[in-house]
Design a protein around this nucleic acid. Structure first.
Lengths: 123, 123
DNA sequence: TGCACCTGGTCTACCTTGTAGACCTAAATG
DNA sequence: CATTTAGGTCTACAAGGTAGACCAGGTGCA
């Protein structure tokens, strides 16, 4: 029996924290949110600033972040079209604890790199 | 040209923070670390407590976390074998900012769920 | 008049990653 | 002698990500 069908019988994610963390822990979401922190950005600006995200994934990621209330999407009916994304209050509030994590990563990435190096050497 | 070959020419991850966050933002790592927070666990205990992780992914995740210095792996040469995993100092220190994020998720998951609901309704 | 160009996407074929489940080792137990 | 037990590995297969083509439709250029 495929996983898809099993999921139908699970009424809801049992742990709301996992539900939230699964969303933001998807490789791109946090990066998009951090990129929006300085201010409003357009689609292609996000593409350029992030650098190695595909259009499809950026599109999906933005859509989910909008659904979850982290960002707003504003369409200006011009030609060529202009679409602007910016953080909501919720998005900003999320980045507060996230920044603590980023600070940790910044402080400890050297330790981690050394651990990896030791592991290689120790083999 | 496949991505694999391109990566050969990139000397190192340009952003150490992304490097760290990519590792821990992989769906399972944080969950494993949180499960180890109360104390030492064995392989199958982790399987049971996490519930929906496959053996392979648990194995891989533990291996990487060990490489990066977040956890230690202790093998007792018994039969049947016994292997214990526990957090290092680094692992514990990582969970500190992480707990802030978990607290945020706990406080805001309702808001997020409502936003999702509104989105569905608004369509 | 014709033609390429612009943005913000979607679509499609491919490739990589994750999953479930069989299998393995080697001693103890019934 | 078959089964159990822990901690994995191996192998198909399914799911998810990627690159790149394509689209609309008004504008500038020739």
């Amino acid at each position: 029996m495929p996983l898809q069908e099993l999921k139908k019988f699970e009424p809801a994610p049992p742990c709301p924290i996992r539900d939230v963390l699964d969303r933001i822990g998807d490789q791109w979401s946090v990066l998009v949110l951090l990129t929006l922190r300085p201010g409003t950005r357009r689609f292609n600006e996000l593409m350029r600033e992030i650098g190695d995200i595909s259009k499809q994934m950026l599109s999906r990621t933005l859509k989910r972040l909008e659904q979850d209330g982290f960002i707003t999407r504003t369409v200006y009916p011009e030609v060529p079209p202009r679409v602007e994304y910016s953080l909501t209050e919720l998005g900003h509030s999320f980045l507060e604890p996230m920044r603590a994590l980023v600070a940790w990563a910044d402080q400890n990435h050297r330790t981690i790199a050394e651990a990896r190096e030791r592991y290689r050497g120790g083999n």
